[in-house]
């Protein structure tokens, strides 16, 4: 694996595809989360589940699973790195462009269809917030 392999992806994308960060190994139920969100559709070829733990208004931990191509897997991995430790309001601002920049760019056709992790994160944050509201009421 030390030999350089030429793909249409940057070295950073390759790294996140092959060594995904923060993904939930095994049963996703073992990752006890405060909020979770799922976006995408197997029909389109990509789907992401993002789970977050929240402490003091910040994302203290994040876990995910992704069905999809290299770009989909790498972009969810990148998102998890970007979101960890951020306040919820900061994390909500993470955009597809930010993920793409973090990865050193993505092939144009991949950008629109496979960068969805930030949407799953937004849903997870909404899910967390609705739980808090429910608790209060």
């Amino acid at each position: 694996m030390s030999e350089k392999i030429d793909w249409a992806y940057t070295e950073i994308v390759k790294d996140h595809f092959l060594n995904p960060r923060n993904y939930i190994m095994g049963d996703e139920e073992n990752f006890k989360a405060d909020g979770e969100g799922i976006v995408g559709n197997p029909i389109c070829g990509d789907q992401m589940l993002v789970k977050i733990k929240v402490k003091d208004g910040k994302i203290s931990d994040i876990g995910w699973k992704t069905y999809g191509c290299a770009s989909a897997i790498a972009s969810t991995s990148a998102l998890s790195e970007l979101a960890k430790g951020r306040t919820l309001s900061d994390a909500e601002k993470i955009s597809a462009e930010e993920i793409c920049d973090f990865l050193g760019g993505l092939p144009k056709q991949k950008f629109h269809c496979s960068v969805l992790g930030h949407q799953a994160l937004k849903k997870a944050i909404e899910n967390y917030k609705s739980k808090i509201t429910e608790k209060k009421s």
Partner: peptide
């Protein structure tokens, strides 16, 4: 497969 969301537990939740 381990990375994938396409498992019965997750799809059911959806």
């Amino acid at each position: 497969e381990d990375l994938s969301t396409l498992k019965p537990t997750i799809q059911k939740k959806l």
